[in-house]
């Protein structure tokens, strides 16, 4: 269940940044998860629910963007949407496909609340 580690990493990363800004509460976290990143979205959602307990993110909205897989053929150069890591190039059938998108695991932004 690496989703638990991932959820904890999201919390740590967001809290660290929020603390640097003297924030007390994180109201929103925006994340990007590639569809080919190897993360079960449902499992991650459950893992996040428990990981945010007693943290600055306890009440935070989680805004998630799922990123489609996009490959480029190493043989013919075609670019295409891909739903699996083992999909061949639709144009020439080659498996020498490089991934351009779909492996993302990113924290994009957070919304903090601070007392100034």
């Amino acid at each position: 269940m690496h989703e638990l580690s991932i959820a904890q990493s999201i919390v740590e990363l967001a809290e660290e940044q929020a603390r640097q800004q003297q924030a007390s509460v994180i109201e929103e976290v925006e994340i990007e998860i590639g569809r080919l990143a190897g993360v079960e979205i449902q499992t991650l959602t459950f893992a996040l629910e428990s990981a945010v307990k007693y943290t600055m993110l306890e009440k935070a909205r989680i805004v998630r963007h799922d990123i489609d897989g996009e490959g480029r053929c190493g043989d013919c150069g075609a670019c295409f949407k891909t739903e699996a890591l083992f999909s061949p190039c639709p144009q020439c059938g080659s498996y020498a496909v490089g991934l351009l998108r779909g492996k993302e695991l990113r924290v994009k932004s957070i919304v903090i609340n601070r007392y100034v």
């Binding site: 991932i6 990493s9 740590e12 109201e27 919304v111 903090i112 601070r114």
Partner: peptide
């Protein structure tokens, strides 16, 4: 005087940043 304010912080970091 003091008050609460909201701010958006751009992070753009890999979730596994610390491990990496």
């Amino acid at each position: 005087h003091h008050h609460n304010e909201q701010a958006v912080l751009s992070i753009e970091q890999d979730i596994l940043h610390r491990n990496n």
